[in-house]
Design a protein around this nucleic acid. Structure first.
Length: 125
DNA sequence: AGTATGACTCATT
DNA sequence: AAATGAGCCATAC
């Protein structure tokens, strides 16, 4: 990889092996159907790095700078809670986007989480 | 260069 | 059931 620190503050997206994990995460997230959600851990497990759920969170944090757009609001923690809402443009944006897609949210938590859960391991094989 | 901190999750108290 | 420790590893300082 080239250097990622120094003058470049934002994650550098190139074809190096180092950043392929982030790109894989974004590819999976883009395939989440509207009205469905998945979790950081499910994505990490699907990519074969089961214990790197935190890195999926970092990928979401960086997802705002890439194109095409990544529906980061469809990724929540394993309890169906909107743990990442604070990182959106406004504190309520994540919840608004989800509700606009037909997902019921109450107290920062998805109501019928189990029913709208989309598992990449099952759906993508 | 070393320490701290997470958009996490699991196992162990 | 709630708290704690441990992996994880890219960034921030």
């Amino acid at each position: 990889m080239k250097k990622s620190s120094g003058e470049n503050k934002l994650p550098v997206v190139d074809d190096s092996k180092h950043y392929s994990f982030f790109q894989n995460v974004w590819d999976v997230v883009r395939q989440i159907p509207k009205g469905r959600v998945t979790t950081y851990g499910a994505i990490a497990t699907y990519l074969g790095t089961k214990s790197s759920a935190r890195m999926v969170g970092w990928a979401m944090n960086a997802s705002f700078i890439v194109q095409p757009k990544v529906p980061a609001q469809r990724v929540v923690n394993r309890n169906g809670m909107l743990s990442g809402k604070a990182h959106f443009a406004t504190p309520t944006l994540m919840e608004e986007l989800l509700q606009k897609e037909g997902i019921q949210v109450k107290d920062e938590k998805i109501i019928n989480f189990k029913e709208v859960f989309w598992d990449p391991i099952v759906e993508l094989g």
